[in-house]
Design a binder for these strands. Structure first.
Lengths: 225, 225
DNA sequence: CGTCGTCTTGATCTTTCTCAACCTGTGTGG
DNA sequence: CCACACAGGTTGAGAAAGATCAAGACGACG
């Protein structure tokens, strides 16, 4: 599978926010590192939104209660290195989503007050934050539902996108939720694509074998074979 | 139906951006009014992103090509008074979405360069823009797909949300797209709810009659009647 | 080696998509 | 002023896709 690693931010001198803070020139960065293991919960929907987070390394899922039963929440986005989490802290009192690490992550954390102060004190700060927010939202394509192609089409699109963004390794249940289908349906779609040799699947990995054919499937063209 | 009108911005002195620009104190606002009739296209996905727009009055839909056939685009969000459109102009070269006025609208327009200059020259400008962007994204709930409740449930949720945000009057086809279903399915769901006296539907309007019962439906509880 | 969580597979049934015909309000031209 | 055409919306019958429920396989881990 072709794989381009998502931007991974290690030192603060190569981090968008660190640069904006002028860390290389001795500037103080209000954001402090916080490593978390896979599975950790970073914040919970509804709790007071006091901190903004920046993903330095790893992947984080955002899920929101769907309003039905109590435990009924829907994972609707994945955020990777370079994006901000919990920016709602800047405009409201509580978090809208629950953020969970899907891999081991390193996030940088700053309180709302610190962020506010930082934006006032450094001209580039506001711009850096704005860019992170806008980029994150540009990145997540609107979730697709069944009226926009059947399961196989959506899976094919996902695999093609993923090939260039390193989404590999997400649990199947998460991927299924992102694609608006059940894990069973995802599994069947993968199996069907695998049977046609367009991809190779193991329990943990998916490998794209035939990009062109996959693009046809994603486009809804039915190969007559 | 309970209806709270979306914030409507008439004079620049009551507009978030106008305030940030200090219009009341004689400040120059880089944003210039542009009225457009319902149905007008404000910008098209893929074309060079040179301008950022601010919705002063009215409603605008955003749609994105789904990657399948050529004319195959999916309306995935509605933006109302007080939100910014086309902020991708700040971070990329082309628009991601196509923006179309669903009602008569008044939008304020500024070129990317003007916005950049404005943000550098006025401290409050960046903050105002950031808030508009974040608020807009907080407002749009992730689209639901069939695995998150059947058509009736999703329609019920929508009606309840809409009751407090003035989404009334959108064409059925648009609403259907936002709910991830076909117009036919939406129509049937509305008819079914109307048959049970939870709502009253006419060709142009939908009125909620029984909020509690509707909440039950939205929550997936099946009334045994 | 056995247990657990996650994923896969299978059979069945519900939902919604599809395609078609039919309304109904609006605007047009005679 | 009325007939007419048109777009958007509704309704119906049938087919296909995915949800559901249940059981089994696989890999991780103690």
């Amino acid at each position: 599978m072709v794989r381009r690693l998502a931007e991974s931010v290690n030192g603060c001198t190569s981090c968008r926010l660190g640069i904006a803070a002028g860390v290389a020139a001795g500037g103080r960065c209000p954001w402090v590192d916080m490593p978390r293991p896979a599975g950790a919960c970073l914040y919970v929907a509804g709790e007071p939104a006091e901190r903004v987070l920046f993903v330095k390394r790893g992947a984080v899922t955002l899920s929101r209660e769907s309003g039905r039963g109590r435990d009924d929440e829907v994972t609707w986005a994945v955020r990777r290195s370079g994006s901000l989490l919990g920016v709602e802290a800047l405009v409201r009192d509580s978090y809208l989503d629950t953020a969970r690490a899907v891999t081991d992550v390193v996030v940088c954390v700053a309180s709302r007050a610190d962020v506010d102060a930082w934006m006032r004190s450094r001209e580039q700060a506001g711009r850096a934050i704005l860019e992170c927010v806008v980029l994150a939202h540009c990145a997540d394509a609107p979730r697709r539902s069944s009226s926009e192609g059947n399961a196989e089409e959506r899976v094919a699109s996902w695999l093609l996108e993923q090939a260039s963004d390193g989404s590999a390794g997400l649990p199947r249940t998460v991927v299924a939720a992102l694609l608006g289908m059940l894990p069973e349906t995802l599994s069947r779609a993968l199996a069907s694509l695998a049977a046609r040799r367009l991809i190779a699947v193991s329990r943990k990995h998916v490998e794209v074998l035939d990009v062109e054919a996959l693009e046809q499937v994603a486009a809804g063209e039915r190969p007559k074979a």
